[in-house]
């Protein structure tokens, strides 16, 4: 997970100050245009977008602090998905929960696939015996070369 630079505009204003604690403007703008159907002919003013970004940041802060409180109550050191859904519930956003759970589950699935992809052992398609045999041969070969 690197810095999500793609949609980030390299704006000198953004660089100074609390850019890191805000959301990328271009991304938010793109999402807004996705939400507003082109048929509506509505456009989002710049200052409205900036305000929207502030609101979004506030939302993240609110949810995470609420989730933090919940996790502390449960004597957990890490804020888990579960805490987020509980926080959403207490904050009156319980209608988001199914979609949130789904997104988290989806991410888990992709993560699993990624892990599997990175696993050479499983990708090789050979049994452990075969692999051990290969190792023995390779060692024998190396020994011969050495001698």
């Amino acid at each position: 997970m690197g810095r999500p630079g793609k949609s980030d505009k390299w704006d000198p204003k953004d660089c100074s100050g609390s850019d890191d604690l805000s959301l990328p403007k271009a991304t938010v703008q793109k999402m807004v245009t996705e939400i507003l159907p082109a048929s509506s002919g509505l456009s989002f003013a710049k200052e409205a977008r900036d305000l929207l970004i502030e609101c979004c940041v506030e939302f993240i802060t609110l949810v995470s602090s609420e989730a933090n409180e919940i996790s502390e109550k449960e004597a957990k050191k890490t804020i888990a998905c579960d805490h987020i859904t509980k926080a959403l519930e207490t904050l009156g956003f319980s209608e988001y929960i199914p979609a949130v759970l789904e997104a988290a589950a989806q991410h888990k699935e992709t993560q699993k696939v990624r892990e599997k992809r990175g696993n050479k052992l499983e990708d090789s398609g050979m049994t452990m015996e075969q692999l051990e045999q290969m190792q023995r041969e390779a060692l024998a070969e190396a020994r011969q070369k050495f001698q």
Partner: peptide, 29 residues
């Protein structure tokens, strides 16, 4: 990063920012 800007917030599970991101998306919509 925004979540952890709050000093009280410590570790965050890998799924958590994704969950928050989804909630944020719905909120924004």
């Amino acid at each position: 990063r925004i979540m952890q800007a709050d000093e009280e917030v410590g570790k965050v599970a890998q799924q958590t920012p994704i969950a928050v991101g989804k909630a944020l998306e719905l909120f924004m919509v």
